[in-house]
Design a protein around this nucleic acid. Structure first.
Length: 703
DNA sequence: GATTAGTCGATTTTT
DNA sequence: TCGACTAATC
């Protein structure tokens, strides 16, 4: 096995003599090659478990040890988890110089930059970031304005509308094309949808709002329209690394390329076999096309797997071998282990859950910590049955993915109130806050907003007799006084949150029977607020980098106690565990019903299956419940149907020697250093014309 | 005319 | 569990 320990001693390995870290010992040849070449464009094709993160982390450390200013290193990742993990590991490896490395998700990076330069795009620098829910609320409001909510029965719902618009942006296709491809039944509504899209855009701009997509769109605009800024930023970030490149969309690929346009010191790392974000515009073609933008790209492939045993790898290789399109990689491992992946058929979900609980406890007995085991599934709600069983046996767990903290009703209520305090002209926040009041519905809320927000009269107008005399006057006065107190004092985010809670808790108790658990969430929120100096930063982080989990679904236990991990496959990406239980391997669950129509969607589901199975280090359990839950709750529900094992499993059965079949038996009981290059990017040494390539490439793809 | 209580139905994945 | 839709109520 590879020696992963840091080797502080100098001497052997001539290349790294002057370094604190012995790279040659810590890395294999390919990894070391990727780490070592610090100038020029680089593409690293990294198979699952091949030490991708490790390579990135060591490369960052290497750069710093070479004397590169950490602040000129930019590390772009796809998820917050990955970004945090990477910076943490880099700091651990070297020293706190690594903490000055710039990094984050594309979205959070865009936020940082736009806070400085938004004025160049006719946006205020103190713009507000809105989440999906807010976007839906605005679209819904605009839809009502256009009377599109009554006219036709089949006009798309707010959720679908936002989805269509977002898809159009992220996949770089006109709305018309998105409709034709994905929503043919709404094709006739194209003119109205376009009208709505225009209004939505204008609404956001006049109110200083940006949704997730706007962050990327506007950053790209900044980089393409403001040449001076592009150059400045590109020189500031001299070394750029992009993780999970197969999951970038065209917009993100373009941003990365533009940022590197002055120097082409861009290293992208990815694995086409693990591309699972096509629904959000990702195109793994970006990987293959990278050398087209940067012709002198050096390509490295990492094939040695340091995660899984060979039997598991044999199985996962077989999964991806049946994929239609892929780069061939042949992963191998030197990790010993005999245990083949285990395939189990359960009678139903309940038996599936019981088996998992039983097996988990056995493994626990054998000394495997709970948090080294994970149960993976296609979508958040697939684990509800299991959660019940875990709760009844007092097995502690945390769940990744699924309902997020900031998406719960009570947290949204509180943030809406906070947003009013931050900006008393935030119509969407007013709307939500007003609906909390007794006797106020959509119509009354609209009236209030027209007066307070649209007519720019501010909250104080609610003191006027026309409002105070109404039946709801008392409620409105309470709200008005609450806001006024904030305005006249300069409260910290923590104090504001406390005040909001005082105001809100009675409402919470009235509305929800489970207010106790929800109160816990809100107390957690108040704790988080303590970390912030100003409300803007607090609210921004809440939409951009929200805390992972709500208390609601997790058992209330000590924080340090080890817990079993439940996770959607998407959220499990990049992580690994000793043992993996992959549940509900049934056609319709994985692959999901919605994906069965199109071949490319099924291919993505296959990659999802691949991602899930490659998370396992030592043991992999594949479970198929034979009975799907019926549509209803009754045991007599005739819609209960026999289901087919996932087609991916059926594929694999051709290679039945790769798995082992078990039958379930349940036990009883329960900076600026380079020379100026000319504007077209061509230097004397004949360096390729990057900027031109970038523009050519993206123009070609803009249709 | 607006609000609310109550029923029904459906539910991918994430920044 | 949540949101959309419907019918009864203010």
């Amino acid at each position: 096995m590879k020696n992963y320990a840091l080797n502080p001693k100098h001497g052997d390995g001539d290349k790294s003599r002057q370094h604190k870290i012995n790279y040659v010992e810590a890395l294999n040849d390919q990894q070391w090659q990727a780490v070592q070449q610090i100038e020029g464009p680089q593409l690293v094709i990294a198979g699952a478990g091949s030490g991708k993160t490790r390579t990135l982390v060591y490369r960052v450390a290497y750069l710093v040890e070479q004397g590169v200013d950490p602040e000129s290193i930019l590390l772009l990742t796809f998820t917050r988890k990955a970004s945090r993990e990477m910076l943490r590991r880099a700091a651990l490896l070297l020293d706190d110089r690594c903490q000055r490395i710039q990094g984050g998700t594309f979205h959070s990076f865009a936020n940082t930059i736009l806070r400085q330069y938004a004025a160049h795009l006719d946006y205020p620098n103190n713009f507000t970031i809105i989440d999906r829910g807010d976007a839906e609320d605005i679209v819904n409001m605009l839809r009502a304005e256009l009377n599109l909510d009554k006219k036709q029965r089949r006009f798309p719902k707010k959720r679908t509308l936002v989805e269509i618009l977002s898809k159009s942006i992220n996949t770089n296709r006109p709305v018309m094309e998105v409709l034709a491809d994905d929503y043919p039944h709404f094709l006739d509504d194209e003119p109205q949808i376009m009208e709505l899209a225009g209004r939505y855009l204008r609404y956001k701009q006049t109110k200083g709002l940006m949704d997730y997509d706007d962050l990327l769109v506007n950053l790209r605009r900044l980089l393409t329209e403001q040449d001076g800024i592009r150059r400045k930023l590109s020189r500031q970030f001299r070394y750029i690394l992009v993780d999970e490149y197969q999951d970038t969309n065209l917009l993100q690929a373009m941003i990365a390329a533009l940022l590197a346009s002055e120097h082409a010191n861009l290293m992208v790392v990815g694995d086409d076999s693990q591309s699972i974000y096509a629904f959000r515009g990702a195109q793994f073609k970006n990987i293959m096309d990278f050398p087209k933008i940067f012709p002198n790209t050096r390509v490295t492939t990492l094939e040695q797997n340091y995660r899984s045993t060979q039997p598991i790898l044999d199985f996962t290789n077989a999964i991806i071998a049946s994929a239609k399109e892929k780069y061939s990689k042949n992963l191998f491992s030197e990790i010993s282990g005999e245990q083949k992946p285990v395939y189990l058929q359960a009678l139903n979900e309940r038996e599936q859950s019981q088996f998992i609980c039983q097996r988990i406890l056995e493994l626990r007995e054998e000394g495997i910590p709970l948090d080294e085991m994970a149960v993976l599934f296609r979508s958040g709600w697939h684990s509800t049955e299991l959660e019940i069983e875990l709760n009844s046996r007092n097995i502690p767990f945390v769940k990744f993915g699924g309902m997020k903290f900031t998406e719960t009703a009570h947290v949204k209520d509180v943030t809406a109130l906070l947003r009013i305090l931050y900006n008393p002209f935030d119509a969407i926040a007013w709307y939500r806050s007003l609906l909390l009041l007794d006797g106020v519905g959509p119509a009354t809320a609209r009236e209030v907003i027209d007066d307070v927000v649209e007519a720019q009269k501010g909250p104080e107008i609610l003191a006027a007799p026309e409002w105070s005399k109404r039946k709801i006057g008392g409620e409105l006065t309470r709200l008005r006084l609450f806001i006024a107190e904030s305005v006249s004092n300069n409260f910290s985010p923590a104090e504001e949150t406390k005040r909001v809670l005082e105001y809100y808790l009675p409402i919470l108790k009235k509305n929800y029977d489970d207010y106790h658990k929800r109160t816990h969430d809100l107390e957690a929120l108040a704790k988080i607020a303590e970390r912030y100096q100003d409300l803007e930063a607090f609210l921004t982080d809440l939409t951009l980098e929200p805390p992972e989990n709500s208390q609601i679904d997790t058992t209330a236990t000590d924080k340090d106690e080890e817990k079993l991990i439940l996770s959607t496959i998407h959220s499990a990406k990049g992580l690994e565990w000793h043992s993996i239980f992959l549940i509900n391997l049934v056609d319709g669950f994985l692959p999901a019903t919605q994906s069965l129509q199109r071949e490319e969607d099924i291919e993505e589901e296959r990659r999802l299956f691949y991602v899930a199975t490659t998370r396992a280090k030592q043991q992999l359990y594949l479970l198929t419940p034979e009975l799907e839950r019926g549509g209803g709750l009754s045991y007599f529900d005739t819609r209960t149907v026999f289901t087919l094992p996932s087609r991916f499993i059926q594929d694999i059965e051709k290679f039945s020697n790769l798995t082992e079949q078990w039958t379930i038996t349940l036990k009883s009981e329960e900076s600026e250093t380079t020379e100026e290059k000319s504007d077209d990017g061509t230097a004397d040494d004949g360096a390729p014309n990057f900027l031109k390539n970038i523009n050519d490439y993206f123009n070609e793809h803009r249709n």
